[in-house]
Design a protein around this nucleic acid. Structure first.
Length: 375
RNA sequence: GUGGAUGUAGUUCAGCUGGUUAGAACGUCGGAUUGUGGUUCCGAAGGUCGUGGGUUCGAGCCCCAUCUUCCACC
């Protein structure tokens, strides 16, 4: 399951190995988002061979709507379907039900929502989202939760947490009474909610910890609240979540967010930023963050990143990438995504190394300063 | 050669019977984007209304000339 390998003496940061049926994941780790059975624009081969992604995300909501559970079942699960034999984590679709579908109805039972593709009506429950994730065959499944918006008043957040906890109980029952379809062990991670309210977060963290799952997640952050609020909540929650299990901060974040969270004891991350923003020209480089669309890169023939976290970072120039992105060429999105993911993966790998070496804090402060520079 | 049409932002066009500072879309240039709807949102710059005259208190709009482009007919 999870084995802590080293701990930082000056902070909560730690390194570890998360063992799954599809391979070991060194932590801290960043997980590229591959919503619909693809990390947009990138070949599985490039993910594993070029930037060495250890685990990727899938999304229950999207995969359930397309291609649908029948196809996934016939394919033998998502790993086989997409020819990816490393670990996969699936989000339950909780986030999509609340962010994507305009009209949905919540009840104790679950969520009734309309497909964003054809308007058809569907129901997600704590039980059927487990069933779907069994079919997908995710190494790590997430419980169905409500990701409350921000800002959000106390009463709403309180009700939302209660609902999420109620759903957790039912999800755990279904998890225990079912087996993996494809013979490979699957974990279930519950999710701490509670907005930016300290007491709700404490109650939620205790509830989530008591479920006794293989790992735990923190959701409902980075939804618009100031970064300082997020860091404060992470500290409060991580005080309670068991230290011997991996902690996954959902949907976060910027490179600086990652370092601040690692320092506070987070082990796993996912975020669309390196890919989605990359497609739109935002590049994270060792020289600073740049908007490759800006005119000043028009005739800059230096490599995308001279410290090259991926092969594409070194062999293509800023001027060329600018041309591709501005022209809307697929290759621009591809190169930007590979580079940015490479940057994120190298960042967490370096953090891991620094924690092991015992000089994480010094390195982190220097990196935060450097990463905050906007070229 | 004759007749008709056309000319307004980089592009495609709107602009009522003449009335404040000529608009839109796209493009360009900036900014944003945090459990991906192959996105979305915000801001800015950019026009001597083909040219030259005229009528009028006032012209993108009306009149004359001229040029451009397109079409039709001899």
């Amino acid at each position: 399951m999870f084995k802590i390998e080293s701990r930082d003496k000056e902070s909560r940061a730690r390194t570890g190995i998360l063992k799954t049926a599809h391979g070991d994941i060194p932590t801290p780790i960043f997980m590229p988002v591959g919503t619909g059975g693809t990390v947009k624009g990138i070949l599985q081969r490039d993910l594993s061979e070029d930037i060495n992604a250890k685990i990727i995300l899938g999304n229950t909501y999207h995969l359930y709507l397309r291609p649908g559970t029948e196809v996934l079942k016939a394919a033998g699960g998502l790993h086989k379907f997409m020819s990816w034999d490393r670990p996969i984590l699936t989000d339950s679709g909780g986030y999509q039900v609340f962010s994507l579908t305009g009209n949905r109805k919540l009840s104790d039972e679950g969520a009734v929502f309309k497909s964003h593709i054809d308007g058809s009506k569907h129901v997600f429950t704590p039980e059927n989202t487990i069933d779907i994730q069994r079919i997908i065959g995710a190494d790590i499944m997430m419980v169905f939760d409500e990701c409350a918006p921000w800002p959000c008043d106390y009463q709403y957040a309180k009700k939302s947490v209660a609902l999420t906890h109620h759903w957790l109980d039912r999800a755990v029952v279904r998890f225990r009474e079912t087996d993996p379809l494809w013979g490979k062990e699957q974990f279930l991670f519950p999710i701490v909610q509670g907005g930016v309210f300290d007491d709700l977060r404490k109650i939620s963290a205790e509830k989530i910890a008591s479920a006794g799952m293989a790992g735990n997640a923190i959701g409902g952050l980075s939804v618009g609240e100031p970064a300082e609020e997020m860091y404060r909540i992470i500290e409060i929650v991580n005080e309670i979540l068991p230290p011997d299990k991996p902690r996954y901060l959902m949907g976060v974040g910027t490179p600086v967010n990652l370092l601040e969270a690692i320092e506070r004891g987070i082990d796993m991350f996912d975020c669309v930023m390196p890919t989605r923003n990359g497609r739109n020209g935002m590049l994270f480089t060792s020289e600073g963050t740049i908007n490759i669309r800006n005119r000043k890169w028009m005739d800059d023939f230096s490599p995308i990143d001279p410290e090259g976290p991926s092969t594409v970072s070194l062999c293509y120039s800023k001027a060329y990438l600018r041309h591709l992105v501005i022209s809307g060429e697929n290759l621009g999105a591809q190169i930007a995504s590979i580079h940015n993911l490479g940057f994120y993966l190298r960042l967490v790998e370096e953090a891991r190394k620094k924690i092991e070496e015992g000089n994480f804090k010094v390195w982190k402060s220097a990196m935060v300063k450097k990463l905050s520079e906007r070229l």
